[in-house]
């Protein structure tokens, strides 16, 4: 499928992409520092953490749920990773443990939602606090710092001139897109979000899928924690505060409906990039920190409003 045809087929994403391109255009006019290779790589790197968390949230939101615990899960998984590394575990094993912790937290969310019949908002709100407390407990509230260069390569390394975290992000998006579009699980995710009752009566294993979806969300938060820990050379138990909100914003800007059933992984990537570019651009322009917050909030609202207008014009 050629790019123009792809855009026509995904008109909603085309809108988001257009917003993104306009934003880039505006910024390259306003500051000479924006459109440089090093800055673009810089933006990409800064987008990675939010983008990876947002993939998980995209799945959760597509299925009609919400996950508020990702920021805390990121912190918990991060400190587990850091403690494992400091205990001398080999890097792959430590990362594995970190991902397991993240997925386990997600599984708890999923079980509470699917079998405990708790509203996702409540279940994940609870786990948000539990995971945060857990992270503070195991570290006694202190950051865990200082790792081998082999681990830090995940943040500092480059392959073909592109930083490793950016490759990781692209890989995550590639796989997530494929899974959503080309596997049963992916189909089930959108079907459950679109109409849970109809999905159940069509033989979709709704409960099992939900557990899987939240486990995936937790696992991706843990994956983000790997990249964050490598980047900061430290895992903080207070890391990731309010990251869930950034990830929700990226997902929604990317055109995923909070009602579930509609949206795309690709859109979320663009949504995360919009947020990254905006923050970067405002920094480059030297805009005051207070104004930045106003502008970012306004852009989130504008992007979603645009979506409503866009859908309205089709009706």
């Amino acid at each position: 499928m050629t790019l123009p045809r792809f855009l026509v087929a995904n008109a909603r994403q085309a809108g988001t992409v257009a917003v993104f391109l306009v934003l880039c255009l505006v910024l390259s006019v306003l500051t000479p520092h924006f459109l440089t290779t090093s800055n673009l790589l810089n933006v990409a790197q800064q987008t990675v953490i939010n983008a990876v968390i947002a993939v998980g949230l995209t799945y959760v939101i597509l299925s009609g749920g919400i996950d508020l615990s990702v920021g805390s899960v990121l912190a918990l998984a991060g400190v587990v990773l850091a403690l494992a590394l400091q205990a001398g575990w080999p890097v792959p094993l430590a990362i594995g443990a970190c991902l397991v912790v993240g997925a386990a937290c997600g599984t708890v969310n999923g079980l509470l939602v699917a079998f405990g019949r708790l509203p996702p908002f409540i279940a994940t709100l609870g786990l948000m606090s539990v995971a945060r407390g857990g992270a503070l407990l195991v570290t006694d509230g202190r950051p865990v710092s200082g790792f081998d260069a082999s681990f830090r390569w995940l943040a500092t390394g480059e392959v073909l001139g592109i930083p490793v975290p950016v490759w990781c992000m692209l890989a995550v998006y590639g796989v997530a897109h494929f899974v959503l579009k080309r596997t049963k699980f992916g189909r089930y995710v959108v079907a459950i979000g679109g109409n849970e009752e109809a999905s159940l009566l069509s033989g979709v294993p709704v409960a099992a899928c939900k557990v899987g979806i939240y486990a995936l969300g937790g696992g991706l938060a843990a994956a983000a924690s790997v990249l964050l820990t490598a980047r900061l050379n430290s895992a903080q138990p207070i890391a990731g505060l309010s990251y869930e909100l950034d990830a929700i914003a990226a997902t929604v800007i990317g055109g995923t409906s909070l009602m579930g059933g509609q949206g795309s992984v690709f859109g979320t990537l663009v949504g995360a990039l919009i947020m990254g570019v905006l923050r970067n651009g405002l920094n480059l322009l030297g805009v005051s920190s207070y104004v930045q917050q106003v502008v970012i909030g306004a852009v989130i609202i504008a992007a979603v409003l645009l979506d409503t207008v866009f859908k309205g014009s089709k009706r």
Partner: peptide
Amino acid sequence: KRQGLVLCRDIEENTSLA
């Protein structure tokens, strides 16, 4: 509408769901 179809998805996705 409530139990048979995933309204916001397309025809192909609905027919193949089961």
